[in-house]
Design a protein around this nucleic acid. Structure first.
Length: 958
RNA sequence: GCAGGAAUACCCGAGCGGUCAAAGGGGGUGGACUCAAGAUCCUCUGGCGUAGGCCUACAAGGGUUCGAAUCCCUUUUCCUGCACCA
């Protein structure tokens, strides 16, 4: 690893020389941002990856000569730390344990964590420190917190703007809610019921003596097939007064209802048994239905009142059948005669099913009784089928021929318009339990403010924004398209948490995903804010800076010179070139990013590109701080040094893929990096005197094939790595710039081992090595900045390598025939070894024959034809009269048919001299004398006929 | 359920019509070096083979093509998101 002292030294040098403070100038700019962190805990290695990627890119672009802006801020708005502070306050052992042992917060600091703002301040500073220790090239002058008053002015401006454009609305909204905490809850607040959705049920009012038995249903269209109501006589029911109506519902259903309806009062208990046997009126058909007892009715679900459609609901049908068999119960409620007349009614036609589809489902799933577990599946199946394919039949009057979905929508409207029904929200699954242990309910929040992402014109702008963006990886584009279409109105106001107040209604806070959509614009002027009174930041000011909207000078309180400077700076950096964020933010943050930019800014300021991150794993398992399955970045730095961590994180997966932190592989990377530094020492030794790297930035001119080969490889690696980095492919870039580069060098050393005493040859090699070293240091700077800075300094590099030019790539040096030549030598050596292994003899002498000229010609002909068309190859060859022996041509042409597709033809190569040149190496490898022939003057077994271009023939003498 | 994506050798992963028995890393094997361990370097890591070859392979099945891990269809399995958590 790079010594931590050395890393710190360079970090100091960078900061002191203001290397990463970027201001507008004449150069071309690149502006890259990554999602600012929500600092509610310490930074772990997953965060390390997230912030290293933009740093690598920023460093790369800086070396290419761009003026690069890479800023950072802290997203401290939101509710989580409020909850954390509360839990710390009440000494919750689980929370205290995590903060003490996982986040390593000292006791004295922990005491202050009862203040949520202190928590984000504490971890904001910790992030800043760790980011500095990681060597990130951030312009810290632009650092801010989202609670800074200046930023809040910016957010207020943004929201007023959106509201004036008619893109903010007000309405009702159902949420998961904890009655104990009196707060909406998110998935992370739950002990149980994560990811459970909220369904919308229709309430149907069945009149009974001036009261209503109110049933909840997903399928109001089945009202036409209703035969009776179900109550559970074992449960408690109550009468409530709601507005002017009296409803009868289960007692357990009250909690949910009371959070969704206004003006509710409990009037008293109702004995369900007394209702059994009475008749209620169907609000849609006017038909009277009897109330019957059923044990399957769950008093907590819906209203605890169910209307029965035995024709289409398997549960109702089986319950009815059970009841008919239950003489005891029938006796008890005096239902014996009344029940006889109740028969299922089919009202929805379904292909391949009979008159009573519910019966078919009972049979299909073999449901035995109303508490049978298979019942749920039967219900789901028929629901899906009828929803998708069902058609209303003649018993449904006006709705005859309607598709189920359409009939349902119309019936809901009809019921609501005539006050015959209502809406109730309910969890799709239960239980949903808050961390405090309380059962959650669905609550309707009123006066909820929305961002109207459903607005068609706004969507259109977002689509256009997307269309002109670079998306990495490109496959994610389809997701964006989908999400932009799918997004509905987004509740953007909250009661709880830290944040900016809604400017027109200060009872509400702006929700955190909504206050972080265009803040990249704010970075461009953030460095000016120290000298500005936030109260002077009015809308006219922001309009002028960000939108070039001029207003009369009197309304802007900032000096016109300064205002202009900020406007120019914004116009210089914007549009944003790259936005980096996590994969799970595609459907919200990143999409909002496009929505808001496209609404507020003119087209030339719309964002240009997005890079999406994958997740982090630890030894194959998901990282999770709550489960303690996590490695803190600071600990990792102390163990390995930040260069190793950067190199590991960038090489183990591409940014958008999941990476896996494996201790074993991190150690492997550490060794590899050591090799890199060791290489520098080796070069120094071979070179023999002080290296002045500035004199070797360009490739030396060389004679030996192996030197030429090495220089070709280096330039190829430069090209590949550069292209990879342009597309944020850090892993591929490192494959080329590091792993394959190292392999090439290994090969070089291996190949020249035998000539280490040859002074003349080694002099040339030394030149090559010093050139290699200079290239390699520069290629590695974005990944391993500290170590490279140190090497650059040691070998007389001018200035800081962090701002030295990226290595140049010389296309003309990537000579395919040079590369092919080395491939031939290597391939020959492998072939010899393979034959040795197969024939199992100790060779005395190995004879090598290169292909005669006519074979090369034939190869060229075949290459020109392009297809393995033997006939055509033959014809052309004979016409050109390349060889006398037609039989040999035929034989060889056949061989070519097979071989030509297997190798890349790069033209004629002087194999003879290449092999001659490599005899020492080859005989060392084969452990035998090697003789190379351009004519087969000695060939007792006629092996020379096997010779092919790029594949010399071999004869091994035992 | 809806939407998007993925399936490659012991593991992670590259490859996206011929140069593929398939890059690179990890792990394993044998060897060099060493008193030894470690580190480092080299070899091998589907099967068979007394001449560089052959056979079987890239989830399964089918198809297009002179030729498919790569293109098309079907099936199976897995992952991610689905709204108020940033």
């Amino acid at each position: 690893m790079t010594d931590i002292k050395i890393e710190e030294k360079w970090q100091r040098v960078w900061q002191e020389s203001n290397l990463f403070q970027s201001d507008p100038n004449n150069k071309k700019k690149v502006y890259v941002t990554v999602a600012y962190p929500y600092p509610s805990g310490a930074m772990h290695v997953g965060h390390g990856r997230t912030y290293t990627v933009p740093d690598v890119y920023a460093r790369f672009k800086r070396m290419q000569g761009y003026n690069v802006l890479f800023p950072m801020g802290w997203h401290v708005t939101g509710a989580p730390v409020v909850g954390i502070a509360k839990r710390i306050q009440r000494q919750d052992p689980w929370t205290i344990d995590i903060y003490k042992n996982i986040h390593k917060v000292p006791e004295s600091e922990l005491a202050k964590f009862t203040d949520p703002e202190y928590i984000v301040k504490y971890f904001g500073e910790e992030y800043h420190n760790v980011m500095t220790r990681m060597g990130y090239s951030i312009d810290w002058r632009r650092e801010f917190k989202t609670l800074d008053p200046h930023y809040q002015k910016f957010i207020e401006w943004q929201f007023r703007k959106l509201k004036n454009m008619g893109l903010v609305g007000i309405g009702e909204h159902p949420v998961k809610y904890c009655p104990e905490d009196q707060n909406p809850v998110g998935d992370h607040d739950l002990l149980e019921g994560e990811g459970v959705g909220i369904n919308e049920l229709t309430l149907i009012k069945f009149e009974l003596d001036g009261n209503y038995l109110v049933a909840a249903t997903f399928r109001p269209e089945t009202l036409f097939g209703a035969t009776n109501l179900w109550l559970n006589p074992d449960e408690d029911y109550i009468k409530i007064k709601i507005d002017d109506e009296k409803w009868i519902i289960a007692k357990d259903a009250y909690d949910n209802l009371t959070n969704q309806k206004k003006n509710i009062e409990i009037e008293g208990d109702v004995d369900a048994s007394e209702l059994v046997g009475k008749y209620v009126k169907n609000p849609l058909t006017g038909i009277e239905h009897i109330v019957l007892p059923a044990s399957f009715v769950d008093p907590e679900y819906g209203t605890g009142v169910v209307y029965s459609v035995p024709g289409h609901a398997p549960a109702d049908l089986i319950a009815l059948q059970d009841l008919k068999k239950n003489d005891e119960l029938l006796e008890k409620f005096g239902l014996v005669e009344k029940i006889e007349t109740i028969q299922p009614v089919g009202i929805i036609k379904l292909k391949d099913y009979g008159e009573i589809p519910a019966q078919d489902m009972l049979d299909k799933f073999d449901v035995k009784h109303q508490n049978d577990p298979n019942l749920k599946e039967a219900t789901n199946e028929i629901y899906k089928l009828e929803h998708a394919k069902g058609v209303m039949d003649e018993k449904t009057g006006d709705y005859k021929g309607y598709k189920v979905v359409d009939a349902r929508d119309e019936i809901i409207q009809l019921l609501l318009n005539n006050k015959l029904g209502d809406i109730l929200f309910e969890f799709a699954e239960r239980p949903v339990i808050c961390r405090c242990g309380t059962k959650c309910v669905v609550k309707i929040l009123e006066d909820q403010w929305f961002l109207k992402y459903s607005d068609e014109e706004w969507k259109e702008l977002a689509y256009q924004c997307l269309e002109n963006m670079n998306i990495i990886p490109e496959e994610i584009r389809a997701n964006f398209n989908y999400y932009i279409g799918w997004l509905q109105d987004w509740a953007c106001s909250r009661r709880i948490g830290l944040g900016t107040k809604l400017p027109w209604n200060t009872d509400w806070l702006i929700e955190p995903l909504s206050d972080s959509t265009i803040y990249m614009a704010y970075y461009t002027i953030a460095k000016y804010m120290n000298s500005i009174d936030p109260e002077d930041l009015n809308d006219e000011f922001f309009d002028e800076v960000f939108l070039d909207i001029k207003s009369d000078n009197s309304s802007i309180k900032i000096g016109s010179e300064l205002t202009k400077q900020m406007r120019d700076e914004f116009n210089y950096w914007y549009p944003l070139d790259w936005r980096l964020s996590a994969k799970d933010l595609v459907g919200n943050h990143l999409s909002f990013h496009m929505f808001h930019h496209s609404a507020i800014f003119p087209r030339d300021k719309w964002p240009q590109g997005i890079v999406v991150f994958g997740m982090g794993l630890l030894e194959g398992n998901k990282m999770s701080s709550s489960k303690g399955n996590i490695i803190m970045l600071e600990d990792a730095i102390n163990t390995y040094g930040s260069d190793v961590i950067r190199l590991f994180l960038m090489s183990s997966a591409e940014p958008w893929q999941d990476f896996d932190w494996r201790e074993n592989e991190v150690r492997g990377i550490s060794k590899r990096m050591e090799w890199f530094f060791e290489f520098a020492r080796r070069v120094e030794k071979i070179y023999g005197s002080q290296i002045l790297i500035m004199d070797h930035l360009n490739p030396p001119s060389v004679e030996q094939p192996i030197s030429k080969w090495m220089i070709a490889q280096v330039n190829m690696r430069i090209k590949e790595a550069t292209e990879a980095l342009e597309g944020f492919q850090t892993r591929k870039a490192l494959q080329d710039a590091f792993f394959l580069f190292k392999k090439d060098i290994d090969h070089l050393f291996y190949r020249i081992e035998h000539q280490s005493e040859d002074e003349e040859a080694m002099k040339e090699i030394a030149e090559v090595l010093v050139y290699l070293l200079g290239v390699w240091i520069r290629l590695m700077v974005p990944f391993v900045p500290h170590g490279c800075e140190e090497l650059w300094n040691r070998f007389g590099g001018e200035g800081l390598v962090s701002v030295t030019a990226w290595p140049e790539y010389f296309a003309e040096l990537v000579d395919e025939s040079v590369q092919k030549g080395e491939e031939i030598v290597h391939g020959l050596s492998q072939d010899i070894n393979e034959i040795k292994k197969v024939i199992n003899i100790k060779p005395q002498k190995i004879h090598v024959y290169v292909a005669p000229e006519w074979k090369w010609k034939l190869f060229e002909i075949a290459d020109g034809i392009g297809k393995p068309d033997i006939g055509k190859i033959m014809q052309t060859a004979i016409k050109q009269n390349i060889h006398d022996n037609k039989k040999e041509i035929a034989e060889f042409a056949k061989k070519i048919g097979k071989e030509m597709t297997k190798m890349k033809y790069v033209g004629i190569i002087d194999e003879y001299s290449i092999l001659k040149d490599s005899i020492e190496f080859l005989s060392g490898e084969a452990d035998a004398e090697i003789v190379v022939y351009d004519e087969p003057s000695y060939d007792p077994e006629n092996k020379s006929r096997n010779a092919m271009p790029y594949k010399p023939a071999i004869y091994i003498e035992g």
